[in-house]
Structures are given as C-alpha cells and as structure tokens.
C-alpha cells in the first residue's frame, strides 16, 4: 500500500496532538485542583488510535474506553470542549457531567468512552447494526484493551457481530496490563486475535507502535466491513508509558521494562522514519509540535474561562 506524503504528515500530526494533549493534561492534573476525578492517560498508544481513525470519516463511529482521550482526538474532535470537560465546565463536550472516563463527541462519531470495561463492544455492535440497517457503508470501530478480552462483552459482541455480519472493527490495544495485572495472568493464549477465527472472522496481530502498519491493516478491515463481510479484529502490541491512572506508582512493572518500550515510542519511531524518507525536516517537525502545543494551550485557556455548571444542570436531560 502506498501511503501519500500528505497522509503521512497527517498521521504524525495526529499522534503529536494526542501526546501534547495528554502531557499537558497530566501536568495540570498533577498541579492540583483544576481537574477532578480519575484520569487514565494514553501516551505510548497513539499509533493504534491514529492508525485506526485515519481510515474513518465523521460518519463512521468509534467507541473507546476509560483510556479514550487519544482515540477521540484521533477521530478529529475539537480539543476545546474536550479540555473543558476535563475541567468539569459547562462548555465541555458533555456539559461537565461526564469527565475523562465518559467522554462522547457524537458529531465527530465518537459515541462514547466507558467507565465499564468491555461495554463499548456491546454498544458498538448496535451502532454497526444501525449502519447496516440504514444501508449506509459506514463502519464502527471499537477500541479496547487486553483486560477487556476477558469480559463476556467481548465474546458475546464478537459472536453476535459475526453472526449478524455487522461492520465492526475490534481494535485491541495490548499494553500488557489490566490495571496492575500482567496479560500473562489473565489471558491464557499468546495472541487474542486468534480468537477471531473461532467466530469465523479475520484477526491479525501487529506491531501497534507502527502507525503506518496499523493504518494499512485497518484500511483492509474497513474495506472488509464496508463490503458487508462482517467483523474484523486487529490486535496491536503497544505499551502505556504512564500508570493505569495518574498517581499509579507502577511498582508492578519490572525494572527496565518502561525504558525498553520508550525506545519503541511510536512518535519517536515515526519521526525518525519521516526524517529519513525526507517527508519532513527538523524545522517542519518543530513547527508541527508548536502548532499542536498552541492548540492545546488554546483548549486549556478555553476550559479555564468556561463557567462551572449550575446546580440545575444536574436535573436536566434525564429524559428526552
């Protein structure tokens, strides 16, 4: 597959945007009281989010997890209402009610993060059902982690999607941990994508830190889904650079593990590749990083000036 220069720059830019957003969020959270709640960051896993979403339009849907900022940014959501949501402000994408773990931005096809591990998969098959029912060619991608492959939601949803030939792409980011428990403790096989065969669907295991590879594999999955052939599973091997949540001391990680993975940082790898290919030069890379930083800074400023919701907000929108 030939990836255009334009697409390459787009892939790189989206990853940098996520990293900048997550790093800044991390800083603000650590600084104190501005961001309430629990935050699960996705630094290190950008290639999975970007390689997937770069194949989708706003009419395609995604579902993501408690670690969902990256997917939503990759899909193209505006950073301002995202940041305002993290601050619990009225201009947040969910009016400040939901926060990090429950983000949704429906207009860009981000149908929801989820505080309940695995539940995105059950909902994804419904959105895919609607896409098929309404005779669109749209698809639904659902992100989940290694831990989520233990849920009934995964098995039931995959089986149902395969049985009903629903256009769902199951995107599994193996970051090796479910909270503090290593994948080897809770998954009895090497590659969970092997399970797809059991449901009669294609499944592949790939390097989840290689954004072009993810992009190419997902493009095959999208084609498969748009052609009405049912679900497709992509398992990408990646790593989360930070703890399960901000504040996690990570003492369950063996010494040196993080350092090994930092050498395989998807952004650093891609930056080097694009430099070598001459797609980007140092100056342009710097420019992209600055542009992303500006976008994030603007989002933070937007969030800060947005008011807190009034108490009445708690009682609105319970019923349509």
């Amino acid at each position: 597959m030939k990836i255009s220069k334009e697409t390459k720059i787009d892939l790189f830019t989206r990853m940098v945007k996520i990293r900048t957003f997550e790093d800044e969020t991390h800083k603000i959270f650590m600084a104190g009281k501005e961001m309430p709640g629990f935050l699960h960051l996705s630094q290190g896993e950008e290639a999975m989010a970007v390689g997937t979403c770069a194949n989708l339009t706003f009419d395609d849907a995604i579902y993501t997890t408690h670690r969902g900022h990256g997917c939503i940014i990759a899909k193209g959501a505006d950073l301002k209402p995202m940041m305002a949501e993290l601050f619990g402000r009225i201009d947040g994408c969910c009016k400040g009610r939901a926060g990090s773990m429950h983000f949704a931005d429906v207009k860009t096809g981000c149908m929801g993060s989820n505080g309940i591990v695995g539940e995105g998969m059950r909902l994804a098959i419904g959105t895919a059902f609607a896409q098929k029912y309404q005779k669109t060619k749209n698809v639904t991608a659902v992100f989940f982690g290694d831990g989520a492959t233990g849920t009934g939601a995964f098995h039931e949803s995959f089986n149902m999607a395969a049985t009903l030939k629903l256009p769902v792409i199951f995107v599994c980011s193996i970051n090796f941990y479910a909270q503090m428990t290593h994948k080897s403790v809770h998954i009895p096989i090497e590659h969970v994508a092997d399970r797809a065969a059991g449901y009669g669907a294609p499944g592949v295991t790939i390097d989840g830190n290689d954004v072009e590879l993810v992009y190419e594999e997902v493009s095959k999955a999208v084609k498969h889904c748009r052609a009405g052939k049912g679900p497709y599973m992509i398992e990408g091997i990646t790593y989360r650079h930070h703890g399960h949540f901000i504040g996690d001391p990570c003492n369950y990680r063996p010494a040196g593990e993080l350092e090994e993975w930092l050498k395989k940082d998807p952004i650093v790898l891609y930056e080097q590749k694009l430099l070598k290919e001459g797609v980007l030069d140092e100056k342009r890379i710097q420019q992209i990083k600055e542009e992303c930083k500006n976008l994030v800074d603007e989002a933070v400023a937007f969030a800060r000036q947005s008011p807190q919701p009034d108490i009445e907000e708690l009682y609105k929108d319970i019923l349509a």
Partner: peptide, 13 residues
C-alpha cells in the same frame, strides 16, 4: 438524578 463527576454537582448530589 445521576451522580456527576463535576465536584460542585457531586457535592450537591
């Protein structure tokens, strides 16, 4: 109603 993550709304709840 539902419990919000937003501190002011949560405190009210």
């Amino acid at each position: 109603t539902h419990i919000a993550f937003q501190p002011k709304l949560e405190q009210h709840y």
